[in-house]
Simulated scan of single mutants.
Amino acid sequence: MTVIVRDVRPEDAEGFARVRRAALPFMLATPEQVAFDWAHAHPDARYRPLVAEADGEIIGSAQVGLAYDSPQENAGYANVYVHPERRGRGAGTLLARASEEYLVEQGAKDLYTWILDEPGNRAFAERHGYASRRSAHFLRLDLASAPLPPLQEPPAGVELRPAAAFAGDPRPLFELDALTTADEPGDVGTELADYDHWLATTWRHPLFDAELTTVAVVDGVPAAFSAARTDGTGRYGTGMTGTAPAFRGRGLAKLAKNDSLHRARVAGCTEAFTGNDTGNGPMLAINKWFGYEICATEVRYVRRVG
């Protein structure tokens, strides 16, 4: 069986999403979302999705690009996934090699990748010259049967609103998202500065659920939020939960997430997923309080080139 690596074609969206779901069942992936992400990638990211194909079947995929929105210069990323039932055929090695060659051509000096924390995956990364950095947990909550904390009445001056209430002017949510993203734990920071791109790729993303996203508003000002993603099959994912620095320490993020989870259950969602950096103790504690359990761990690896 000959394995080839090539650029994606529009008709590859279903196969690309299928590999992603099989390799990372803790993340939402649909053909519509995959095609949307390809079409709306920021030009500065030089985004180049790849697939590994064998006898006409897509058995692996790679998300490759530059971290254009990071203050760190010359950082690139290549996240490679191979279908668990198709491993051992060299698809991962071919995808990694093609990804690295492309990133070096684009001027990247530090190549970052996420891999599941399994001995075989770690050995693969280390054989290719990568060194481990930080890690992050995937967490799952059984929304169909697990008890949720009771809904709480917001304190005086605080109102809980769905993100859909801001449809006429989402800019306040963009500003809140930018504030909370700026100090999110990670080894490659992110700065949200392009409102139009945020509108196109976050607010209008096919997985983003404005009705189930909850915003805590304090005296008319958006102060905290829990962003919801849904895939139409009963799976719910938290895109981001955060609080603006000026409003921290008041339990607003927990309040918003609890409201979102309760409404997600009413809407028919049966599984909830989220992810946290292993060093993010406060958010891990909040998710444990909700009943989430760690279901897998990813490790960030980096390789310096040039």
Rank of each mutant, 00 (worst) to 15 (best):
E191K: 13
Q63T: 14
A272M: 09
L116N: 03
T297P: 07
G275L: 05
A45D: 09
L116A: 04
N280I: 02
Y292C: 04
L173Y: 10
T243C: 15
A163K: 04
R133D: 13
I4C: 11
H137E: 08
M283E: 10
W203C: 08
R303G: 08
D12T: 07
V221N: 00
D110F: 05
R140E: 14
D196N: 15
P31N: 01
S260D: 06
W289F: 15
L160S: 02
R133Q: 13
F166N: 03
L192M: 12
A165Y: 00
N280C: 03
G90P: 03
D169V: 05
D12E: 07
E126L: 08
E53D: 10
I59F: 11
V104N: 02
L111P: 05
R171D: 10
N280R: 02
K109L: 08
T213N: 00
Y81S: 14
Y77I: 03
A264Q: 03
D12M: 13
L111G: 07
Y301N: 06
L160H: 03
V51E: 06
F290R: 02
W198H: 10
L252D: 02
T190Q: 13
R140K: 14
F290N: 03
L176P: 03
R6K: 12
H42Q: 02
D7V: 11
D209S: 14
D117L: 01
A78F: 09
T297W: 03
P150C: 04
Q63V: 13
L139H: 04
E73N: 09
G239I: 04
H205R: 12
P206G: 11
R21I: 02
H205W: 06
A45C: 02
A67D: 11
L261W: 03
R97F: 02
L116D: 04
K254V: 13
E105K: 07
G232K: 11
A216C: 11
T213C: 02
T238M: 06
A78E: 10
C269Q: 15
G60Y: 07
R9C: 03
